[in-house]
Write a protein that binds this DNA or RNA. Structure first.
Lengths: 217, 217
DNA sequence: ATAAATTTTTAGGCAAATCTAAAAATATAT
DNA sequence: ATATATTTTTAGATTTGCCTAAAAATTTAT
């Protein structure tokens, strides 16, 4: 399996969200920043390998085998992201590019041991779930803080805006991944929020709330 | 720089041992398990990029730039090997194949942080020196234990035979990388050795001695 | 329902990295 | 010193993954 094939499977998975859903040639081309004709070429190749279902002009979808492969690559990508943040002091916004390379390394032992080294994490630094070895992953109800009703509780699992200024702001206000959050009250006037985070009560603007992902518990 | 280009530079470095030495097309082909004609093609390409000195039929040698590149790949390879052994429970004989892949990952921060995580190691699990960021590395007088004179002292830095049985034997006899060794006496009859290793005195066969690399101190 | 717009595929080509087979240069042996 | 052997290069082909341009199929709009 080549890097390119793996990248296509990953893209089809991300666009399709679940195994059966059909994805268009143009959508893949746009996501991967390539030409539709190149996509057609690769789809045919993947089809011959029974990794996708494909009928001319009718779009493409992953087979069981294709989905399993895609999930194993996503598992590797997300485990490496955790590694980079937890062990090598990378910030959330720096990990993606390197993980894109690391996800293609072939060694089952490597990824199993990495999983163990990291303590079998369930989420990556952006709050996305890490598939298990056999392709299962927790389907979380992930929502933005500003969508949460008053009284709702959850865990901060990620950011939408991953720019340096925003991440710095979070640092300064001691808002970090894994912290428990409860919505106490909303300010009608400016749509800001009073929240409890890790036993502290703070006030945050709507703009902040629209960029924090919370896993509802 | 492609993976293939990097692999060629690494091979030329290993065959040449030092920057100026000229290496033959056939030698490269044999080491890399490829055809001489393929080597010629690549050499021309590397020459156009000023990574090697090349004159038709006269062999090839690394330029300053080529050597620097080769050393940075070797640095990455060896740091990853340390990581695999120290952090992911790989054995000495399992690391090479995976390190061959990892050495091509492009990220300066990644490798600097990895270096730090590992405590800036000077040697890889086979006892080979790890080049520094700017390409310097300790030129060790590495010799096999059986070549050491009586009374000589050193540190166990690697093995020649990296088969599983031999590594298991070392484990059982508590001989490991980094341990201090002194040759106390030689047994003329069977060429065996009495050595002190980490304050313990033991007796080892000539066959063992011919497979242990020692850095002389 | 048909014309127009869009999407998708085909056809043909290109660059990288490899190969085989044959030619050219260099090295070796008598 | 010349014939033989070896090494190295060239020429031409192949595969992978991509491209452009044009044709074919599908979708949308009137």
């Amino acid at each position: 399996m080549t890097h390119s094939e793996e990248n296509y499977l990953k893209s089809i998975f991300h666009l399709g969200r679940n195994v059966k859903e059909v994805v268009s040639t143009n959508a893949i081309a746009e996501l991967m920043d390539t030409k539709p004709s190149s996509v057609t070429d690769m789809i045919r190749k993947l089809s011959e390998k029974s990794l996708v279902h494909y009928k001319k002009y009718q779009g493409v979808s992953l087979t069981e085998k294709g989905a399993k492969t895609a999930l194993s690559i996503i598992r590797k990508h997300r485990l490496w992201e955790v590694f980079l943040v937890e062990k090598l002091n990378f910030t959330w916004d720096e990990v993606h590019e390197v993980a894109e390379q690391l996800e293609h390394i072939k060694s089952e032992k490597l990824i199993d041991q990495l999983d163990e080294l990291l303590g079998f994490p369930k989420f990556d630094p952006h709050g996305d779930p890490i598939p298990s070895k056999n392709g299962n992953f927790v389907e979380t109800t992930k929502m933005l803080l500003n969508e949460m009703p008053i009284g709702a509780e959850g865990i901060c699992i990620g950011v939408k805006d991953s720019s340096a200024p925003f991440l710095k702001f979070l640092d300064k206000n001691k808002i970090a991944l894994g912290y428990k959050i409860k919505v106490l009250e909303r300010e009608e006037f400016d749509d800001s929020f009073y929240i409890r985070i890790k036993e502290r009560k703070i006030h945050i603007s709507n703009q902040i709330a629209t960029n924090l992902y919370i896993k509802i518990i």
